[in-house]
């Protein structure tokens, strides 16, 4: 399945992801700038903050327990579409999902 990342400067990167993989992992393993994932997906750092594209927010779903607490400490503006990309697991309905990246993670 595919994920499109759109950086703060508008540049797009299309990557392949496996079912069950997190959006953060897919970004890191495909060398996408703009997602750090310092803690490796342990919900410790808020450096994998992303904005889910308006057309995909329903399929992706909202913030999970504890996520909003971490997003409080994110470096860039938090919006209703904000998620920690380590908490979004790829599944069939998310094939083709579009993810926007914030200006900075630190």
């Amino acid at each position: 399945m595919k994920i499109t990342f759109i950086a703060a400067d508008g540049s797009e990167t299309l990557v392949d992801a496996a079912e069950g993989e997190s959006v953060m992992q897919a970004a890191v393993q495909n060398d996408v700038d703009g997602i750090i994932g310092e803690c490796g997906g342990s919900m410790m750092c808020a450096t994998c903050h992303c904005y889910v594209d308006d057309g995909w927010t329903e399929a992706v779903g909202g913030q999970q327990d504890g996520e909003s607490d971490l997003l409080d400490c994110a470096a860039s503006e938090v919006r209703p579409s904000s998620r920690l990309s380590c908490q979004i697991r790829m599944r069939a309905e998310l094939d083709g999902v579009v993810i926007h990246l914030p200006e900075s993670q630190l």
Binding site: M43, M44, A46, G66, S68, D69, L70, D72, C73
Partner: peptide
């Protein structure tokens, strides 16, 4: 299991 308190 209290990420919010930890981040604060």
């Amino acid at each position: 299991n209290a990420a919010g308190i930890h981040m604060a």
